[in-house]
Design a protein around this nucleic acid. Structure first.
Length: 564
RNA sequence: UGGGAGGUCGUCUAACGGUAAGACUGCAGCCUCUGGAGCUGCGUAUCGGGGUUCGAAUCCCUGCCUCCCAGCCA
């Protein structure tokens, strides 16, 4: 029912599951979960985790829960919950159960009381600052809280009063009694509960104390009988704490396995920083097509299949690597090459007058919709005396290896005729504003009966039939491979790419593109893949360039200019 | 300076004591009604130093480097 993620190479997590299946460690069960905090939108890094968790369960006939780790009401909102649900579905996955850590608040509270009763937790009156001081440093052990040895009764009473709202935010905490001298900070009497008089998006005002993530996460996995709790590397240090809680409470023990988080060049994958971009208006919103969010790349036109294939091609390891953005883009091209219908659109129009073409005549030419997919069929595109071609497809003085149109040279117009340039018309500033050509009627359809060849084929649009459209061209949001690389005192916003968005308001598109369905993806021949933006209005489509086609000429030209 | 986790082509991943392999990128070429797609070929790597072994990316010792941890965030 849910699609198969692209099969990638095996990895140590998959190997572990196979091993556990062979030894019967979980009676043949595989149950994973994807546990986001609803404090922001999902991004491409989450897609890796989604594909891993859902993909592994699918492969071994297991289940996956979608669970919201919503233990901090001050940062979480239903808007985020809704977007995450939508994004996971869009990725093509369905969950066994939709869960919330907040569903377990009562259970967690009861367990906290058990820990107090067994002398393993205490109410601490230290302020946040004092707790930090008492915690010690990497080289020095911490100091035990003076409140550490309160009686069980006193702790029980105080904790009940915390729950009843008798104290202000931050006045007291419930802490585990572990080891202030542990080299692992997570075990230096960590906080279980803090007082937060905040309304929760699901439990409303039922609680004014909330469990810390660390006190909720492992037990949530336990409650859901998760077998393999996959998480990223930074939680490796927390595993001993989760184990301590689960052992102290005496409940089912899932196995946590940590893997490397996705890092992409020219991309920021930090919810905090993405939130800043949105809040400071540096992008249009969470779904700005330059954002690495799933909603952003969806709007940009990335198909979920391409993201799945990208995720599947990624290795799962424990090394902190940096994946080249080009790999993601290549997955998008591969997918769209097979699926996207071809159309013609001219981004920067140059008027071409065909001197020997009859004044009011129109040729209806047949064009292939997708050379990679015969079933996509053909369509008719109109041709007339005045057409537009791309400005960059004409050079009055062509450089070496430039095959396109120039005075005296003949090229082919895609699916139409051979076209020969006679002369260019310039304005006062010396800019070419119009090109006069002749065409060869015998080459209708694109081939010459006499067998002569041309070195180049150009896309074009008939001027009188053209639809005006807006096209948004995107470059990377940041100029540096690592956007976090900044000088002292600067932040990542200095690396924002001023050219990340270029809006072309008067592109000329073939007539079939007047009212395309929102989200539809096309290949504009020779240019790239483009997706219909929701900003489109009837008769005035707006396209986002999803990704450009590989451009061999751009590469040659760039190399040439570098030599100089 | 404490703890945890890592270090294999430019990038990512494999090789689990027995010929260092694949993908992406790059380069060269073929093909082409998209300078797209496709096809062919080429190139570059085991962090350093010691050991064990017939044989080490793999095991041992040692040094170096990178990432994470001192939120009442997750």
């Amino acid at each position: 029912m849910t699609p198969e993620p692209a099969a990638g190479p095996s990895n140590f997590i998959r190997d572990t599951i196979i091993e556990d299946l062979n030894t019967g460690k979980y009676q043949g069960r595989v149950h994973t979960r994807f546990p986001p905090e609803p404090n922001g939108y999902l991004h491409i890094g989450h897609a890796k985790s989604i594909c891993l968790n859902f993909g592994l369960a699918q492969e071994f006939g297991g289940k996956t829960n979608l669970r919201f780790d919503d233990t901090n009401p001050s940062k979480e909102e239903v808007e985020y919950v809704d977007s995450i649900i939508n994004d996971v579905r869009w990725m093509g996955f369905d969950w066994d159960r939709l869960c919330y850590a907040s569903d377990y608040f009562q259970q967690l509270y009861d367990w906290a009381i058990e820990l107090i009763q067994s002398g393993k937790a205490f109410v601490c009156d230290l302020t946040a600052e004092q707790i930090r001081e008492y915690r010690g440093t990497p080289s020095e052990p911490g100091t035990e809280s003076p409140y550490r040895n309160r009686s069980v009764e006193e702790n029980l009473g105080l904790f009940a009063r915390m729950k009843n709202g008798e104290f202000a935010d931050g006045a007291r905490t419930l802490r585990a009694k572990i080891d202030m001298a542990s080299p692992n900070f997570n075990l230096r009497d960590p906080i279980l509960y803090r007082i937060l008089h905040a309304s929760h998006h699901r439990t409303r005002d039922a609680w004014c104390i909330y469990p810390m993530y660390d006190f909720a996460h492992g037990q949530s996995d336990s409650i859901e009988h998760i077998t393999h709790s996959l998480c990223t590397l930074e939680f490796e240090d927390h595993r001993p704490l989760y184990d301590w809680y689960i052992e102290a409470i005496g409940i089912y023990h899932p196995q946590q396995i940590e893997f490397d988080r996705l890092n992409l060049t020219y991309t920021l994958l930090s919810k905090r920083k993405l939130l800043k971009l949105v809040q400071d208006g540096l992008v249009r919103g969470w779904d700005d097509p330059r954002m690495p969010t799933l909603s952003g790349i969806r709007r940009r036109g990335y198909p979920p299949e391409a993201i799945r294939s990208f995720a599947g091609s990624l290795g799962i390891s424990k090394t902190n690597g940096m994946i080249e953005l080009g790999r993601l883009e290549q997955c998008v091209r591969e997918n769209l090459n097979k699926s996207a219908p071809r159309v013609m659109g001219v981004l920067r129009p140059l008027k071409v007058v065909i001197d020997n073409y009859p004044e009011d005549h129109v040729d209806e030419l047949e064009a292939t919709n997708n050379p990679e997919d015969a079933a996509a069929g053909t369509r008719i595109v109109p041709f007339s005396k005045v057409i537009y071609i791309e400005q960059e497809d004409f050079r009055e003085n062509p450089p070496k290896d430039y095959f396109r149109l120039s005075p005296g040279r003949e090229v082919r117009l895609r699916y139409a005729f051979f076209l020969k340039c006679i002369h260019a018309v310039k304005d006062e500033a010396g800019q070419v504003v119009e090109v006069h050509c002749t065409y060869d009627p015998l080459t209708r359809g694109g081939n010459a009966p006499d067998g002569r060849k041309v070195k180049s084929t150009l896309h074009w649009v008939s001027a009188s039939h053209a639809v005006d459209g807006e096209v948004r061209i995107y470059e990377t949001l940041f100029t540096k491979e690592d956007p976090n690389q900044v000088e002292e005192g600067e932040d990542f916003t200095v690396n924002l790419n001023p050219k990340s968005l270029e809006v072309i308001t008067a592109a000329k598109l073939e007539p079939g593109l007047a009212n395309p369905p929102e989200g539809a993806r096309y290949q504009f021949e020779r240019l790239g893949y483009f997706a219909v933006d929701p900003d489109s209005t009837p008769g005035k489509p707006v396209f986002n360039r999803t990704v450009a086609l590989k451009d061999a000429w751009a590469k040659i030209e760039k190399r040439g200019s570098q030599k100089k």
